[in-house]
Amino acid sequence: MTSTLADFSLLCELVPEPGGPDIFDSERGYHWIMVFQIELWGKEQQHMKQNLILVIAMALGTTSTAYANSRIANIDSLESSYVKCIETRFENNCWDKAFIGHFDKWQKNETTIITKSQEAYLAWLDGHSVYKVHIIPSVKRAGVFENRNYLVERDDGEVIGLHVGYRKVLGSWYIYALQGGSDDTFIRSILDMPAPETPPTK
């Protein structure tokens, strides 16, 4: 029998604006609520299945009201701060210091997202240290979106992915996405590395 270290699931949804289309339309936007799901399996099952799924913070829209959050002065400097934070196992509230105040205005659950994501990564570390944070080349589109992805390697060789999405709004940069996961599908997605095709059955 396996033991469960943690089994947490809080699922909300992305809800279109009233009268909007069923699929995402960047001209109309979505109201962001939150999606957060973690599955962390016990040590007895680690070699069979150990998944940590974090789907956090997605928001896109096109209105022009004032911002409560602070723009990001320099993405490279911000990246350096949260990469170092991961390497030092989230010491001295560094995760909060890196991210608080930098999400776009559509994200209403910033504090919860930052707190829960740190808790999830610490649970995945499970007492291990970080061997290295591998930085994946960033992806830029139209001068408006920039995706930065990372592969975090533990001292036992286990890996987990991290995705930080940036969006420029009215000339200033903000975070619109913070996602992570240790499952194969998520890791392959941030690496842009499709799964090998299954050979046909003879």
Results as ranks from 00 to 15, higher is better:
S77M: 13
I53P: 01
Y176L: 05
M193G: 05
I187R: 11
M48R: 14
P200G: 08
A68V: 14
R154M: 05
L170Y: 10
A123W: 00
H102P: 01
L191P: 07
V169T: 11
S129F: 10
P199S: 09
D7M: 06
E153I: 09
M34R: 14
K97H: 14
V55A: 15
K43D: 15
W95I: 07
G181T: 02
G165E: 01
K116T: 05
D25F: 12
I72V: 12
Q45G: 14
V139I: 12
G180E: 06
S189P: 04
G29H: 07
R188E: 00
I100Y: 04
W32E: 07
A68F: 15
I135W: 01
D7Y: 11
I114M: 02
V55C: 13
K84R: 14
L191R: 11
A120D: 00
K132T: 08
V169S: 07
E119S: 09
E39M: 15
D126I: 02
M58D: 14
V144I: 15
E153P: 01
N74H: 11
I23P: 00
K97P: 09
P16C: 05
T185S: 12
P21V: 07
R167W: 08
Q50A: 06
K116N: 14
S3K: 09
F145W: 06
S77Y: 04
E110M: 01
M193A: 09
Y121N: 02
S64D: 05
F36N: 03
G20I: 11
G161Q: 03
G143L: 08
K105L: 05
P18F: 13
Q46K: 15
